[in-house]
């Protein structure tokens, strides 16, 4: 894809891009992956602690503890985003803090805060899901496709 796009460029632009590529600061990919792995893992570890807490001290089972855990994590994220810490974690951890449910929470909350100056209806209401909207859309759609596959396999596949 990238190569195909490059072929359409005039030779001057191609040679410049190669020239600048040698000089630009490189993304520390391996380090970023490690940071993402450990921070993401740590967020999941916190989630697991909360789940265990709900099972031991409240009347939840392993199946039902998921919802309050997610709600608690999102609540913590809301505080971290509101006080301006989550973006620092994001810059450090990248995908590690973006992929877990806290990343989703941060995307909703930060958009809501950002658009407060345009009012509650058109600002906050209209823009709150501008990032999270595609997560919801494609999350629901992929869940639907998976459910379809599962149904087909069970009905006709005899699983």
């Amino acid at each position: 894809m990238a190569d195909k796009k490059k072929k359409n460029l005039p030779p001057k632009a191609q040679s410049y891009q190669a020239f600048q590529k040698q000089r630009e600061s490189k993304r520390p990919i391996l380090m970023n992956c490690l940071k993402a792995f450990f921070v993401g893992g740590f967020i999941c570890f916190i989630g697991q602690c909360i789940t265990t807490l709900y099972i031991h001290f409240f009347d939840f089972t392993e199946q039902t503890a998921g919802n309050p855990t997610v709600a608690t994590l999102i609540f913590i994220t809301m505080l971290l985003t509101g006080f301006g810490f989550y973006d620092r974690i994001g810059q450090f951890a990248g995908a590690g803090s973006a992929v877990p449910v806290t990343g989703f929470g941060n995307a909703v909350i930060s958009a809501a805060i950002e658009h407060r100056t345009e009012g509650f209806v058109l600002g906050v209401g209209g823009n709150m899901f501008k990032l999270a909207g595609s997560v919801i859309l494609f999350g629901v759609f992929s869940a639907f496709v998976i459910a379809l596959i599962k149904t087909i396999l069970i009905q006709w596949g005899g699983l």
Binding site: S25, D87, G103, A107, E114
Partner: peptide, 17 residues
Amino acid sequence: ERQFRYPTEYGGQKPPT
């Protein structure tokens, strides 16, 4: 940032460039 880019508050990681 909110006009042009991806505000840092969205939690994305910016490259060193």
